[in-house]
Design a protein around this nucleic acid. Structure first.
Lengths: 327, 327
DNA sequence: TTGTAAGCGTTATCAG
DNA sequence: CTGATAACGCTTACAA
């Protein structure tokens, strides 16, 4: 591997001169040409590690995601990627496979690699999470969940829940089935649901049945095959669009009409809700925007600027074909 | 930031002893305890850069993907991630935004960072691509496209095309519409299509109309709204599952029945094809497997083992509800 | 403008 | 088993 010394020697100058050429470029026209020529010939590339070692800066951002096949995550990632690029950061994306241990591991690894900041897509917030984050000196920004004393960006999940609740009530529905996810996910499993429940139970004579599933389509589909036959509800609220898509498939299978027999809605605003039929009513979240703002906020954190602990982003109801007035 | 020197000083030993403890651990029970204690107290983490600088090894693999929101890419990525992890590699994933310039840029950046190998998801293979790859000394493995003298993993796209052709002919169809993508993508735009065409035109009395779109759902949907009304075909072959899903939506919109009015199929085997109705006939590609084998092959390349230039992976027809016999 | 030399945090070598 | 010392490739005072 050719290094700065080789270039210096071949060009007949000191390596510091080459370095200067590489960085601020303040060298004489003559040496500039000589160096340029040699670099071209040899295909020399400065070693990024040596550079980071010296400069104590890596220009890298770490991102920890729970899984690679999540539509929402990918949209946020696009925002992150785009913004990081603009700001001159290189991204290291690591996958934790929905596993707490691996989340901690990745956090440590990234810290060791001296990334300047870390964005972590949080699924849950345990004591261990909070402690690990506090133990690394790298700034960490959580996306999706909040916790005491930790910087985070979150969606207005409670409000999203109330939006669906309000809308469903206005359609005249009174009996609901809520298809939720585990409460370990505070934002999606608890707040989103609670917003819905609070809004609906504010009206007398309403009922809410509950079913719990996970984030996968297959699980929701399988459970849907059962609960659709047993429920008394006329409106089914799914905690995510993926779940809604899966329940819709189950309903089709069982020859139920949506929205004839049941109204159905999700949360998220994934592209998929627009490519099934009927198209699914949902609450659209500003995923890409979240990525953009996350990087900006992280940059401020890195530069030790003052930033609010929690930033939350608004969402909005998107009415599609899967919901209809109660009759 | 606490470093190996601090630890050494506090433990009252030489930094080389600490280093030895860190690496092969061959130190006396006594010093081991002392060092362990200090490390715990200080939360010391060895600096990965200094380490890489010295060891001339980074244990990192670079991955260049064209976009973040592709279902197939993400599946391959899962295979890559899983295998890389098993082999002790750390992943750097970079996004090129379907832009050649950025592909070259990323290639350079990764090489500079001294990743040990690079996996590149190729969209097209230009002279420039080939030259850039040959100019870096880092081993590069292409996924999805092949070229003279370049290591790559590809799907049997031509064969996939013939499989659909054979199947459609067996159903009795003779008039086809092929919804393709640009020929810059040799594998998907040319070979997949050619396999289909060759198989179908082997039978006399067949016709194939052609339409071209891109990889996005929206474009395919919009075009579908038009070509569905104009075509003479009874079977529509879409170059990807995404296109098929979008065309299905357009067909629904126009009140055509699938497979009553048109049979419809895609390529890829994405999860989405199973969550629309009717479910879509497709050719399932072993994406995850491709990721796994890619990393294994790249590792061999890195270790300078002998490997075949091109590896191709089989796929298989998955018959679903969107296709029916011609009547 | 250019060169010398020190140092970034590690690991490896080689005496002791 | 342990410690001094020389690298690894680069940047940056400081001096010339």
């Amino acid at each position: 591997m050719v290094n700065i010394n080789d270039i210096a020697k071949q060009a007949g100058v000191a390596k510091s001169t080459v370095s200067r050429y590489l960085n601020n470029g303040s060298v004489s026209e003559d040496t500039r040409r000589k160096i340029e020529k040699i670099i071209k010939e040899t295909g020399y590339k400065p070693n990024a590690f040596a550079r980071s070692l010296k400069a104590q800066k890596t220009n890298m951002l770490g991102v920890i995601i729970p899984r690679l096949n999540s539509a929402s995550t990918n949209e946020v990632l696009q925002g992150i990627d785009e913004t990081a690029r603009k700001l001159g950061y290189q991204l290291i994306i690591t996958n934790s496979d929905q596993n707490n241990e691996r989340e901690f591991e990745n956090l440590q690894t990234l810290a060791k690699q001296k990334v300047e900041g870390i964005i972590m897509f949080a699924r849950e917030m345990t004591e261990d999470h909070i402690n690990t984050v506090k133990s690394v000196e790298t700034p960490v920004l959580f996306i999706g969940q909040k916790a005491e004393g930790i910087h985070s960006m979150v969606h207005q999940d409670y409000e999203a829940g109330t939006k669906i609740g309000k809308y469903a009530l206005e359609l005249g529905h009174r009996h609901f089935l809520y298809v939720g996810v585990p409460e370990t996910d505070q934002a999606v499993g608890v707040e989103r649901r609670q917003g819905f429940i609070d809004r609906v139970t504010a009206v007398t004579g309403t009922t809410i049945e509950r079913v719990e599933t996970d984030f996968s389509r297959t699980a929701a589909y399988t459970k849907g095959l059962t609960f659709l036959k047993e429920t008394e509800a006329t409106y089914i609220v799914c905690a995510t669009d993926n779940i809604a898509v899966a329940v819709l498939k189950a309903a089709n299978e069982l020859n139920y009409s949506i929205p004839g027999d049941f109204s159905l809605s999700g949360f998220g605003g994934y592209e998929a809700t627009a490519y099934v039929s009927p198209t699914i009513t949902t609450v659209s979240y500003p995923y890409r925007q979240m990525g953009i703002e996350a990087v900006n906020k992280l940059r401020q954190l890195i530069e030790k600027e003052e930033v609010p602990l929690i930033t939350d982003l608004q969402n909005n109801l998107v009415v599609n074909e899967s919901t209809a007035p109660f009759k």
